[in-house]
Amino acid sequence: MALRELPFRTVSGLCREVRPAVHAVRPSLRRNASAGALQEVEDSSSFAVPPPSKDLVQNFDPIARSRLRRQGKKQLPASRYQYRPPKYYRGPLHPHQPPPASDPVSREFQPGPFSLPRLEQTYQSTIAADILTLTYQHYPPGYRPPKVENRLRQWSGDSPYFKNRPLRGPRGRGEELRLLNEPRTFRNVPKITKITVHSMVPEAQENSAYLHVAGMILQAVSNVRATAHKARHNVVGWGLREGKYVAVTSHMEREDAHHFLAKLVDVVLPRIKEWKGVPGSSGDGAGNMSFGLTPAQVTLFPEIEVNYDAYPPKMIPGMHITIHTDATNNKDARLLLQAIGLPFYGKLND
């Protein structure tokens, strides 16, 4: 496209129209209430004040200062000094609004991140660029993509209820709308979005200790609080009874996910004897890949090994690991995981 050549030419084209504008406009066509108010309140910047002297900086002891201040005086209860955000959100018009979740006083505040994971750095510096090169599709100048016909069907008929009704899904049983595969650009290089660890322990219906052990193991391994799930239906074949707790999961994102994946690839999987890899049949066509670990393999996690005695050996569960990526097909997701270091075996599911 001509756009490719354009940046320089755009500028030279635009430059012709630039001249000191004839119409002198007072820049504040639009006023923000906050900006005006701020100027009224703060007329001088804190940067104008000289920094404290070196002596003062070296001898500064916040604890001693606070003790000195409190000496001999009875303080009000702590709640008088502390701001507590409202317990409930009462809507946007309520005068007492909760602070954003990123504010440490907020009730929803969660600290973090605590580190810059190595895997994330590798992804940024190496993997992303390589995947972009590997999946690059060249379109010659002037190429226009073929028109995609509407994938959803119209409601045909003269029923008045068809008006404004959402379009029908694709024809056929079990047929669903697949994700669109957008052309690859530097903006949509697939990346890890989430990792789900899941462990199902039907024995927990009789003895809840199984569920506790599974939860502790998942928490230790994933650094995320585990949630327990009930069986939704009676399934005689699997011995499931409706309403009984049978499984635990935990979801990891960002830093936790990267640390978990790096640990898995560098520590746990290499120590498994005769591990073939992730089955090639894995993948749901939307960029998510799953595989499982047996109880014996779960014990290889360093967090479990460090206090292996704390877990009853017979109650250690296996687990399913699902790696969610924002790839839109199995092939791209597999490429990403292979670059990270997960091998695949057997027939590939494309």
């Binding site: 496209m1 001509a2 490719r4 050549e5 755009t10 084209g13 010659p140 100048p141």
Partner: peptide
Amino acid sequence: TRRLAAKAGKPICRSCRDTLSR
């Protein structure tokens, strides 16, 4: 895009011009 490219004066590359005129 085309207007800007035309305004910029100098001839643009052949394949692009091809596309535009086409």
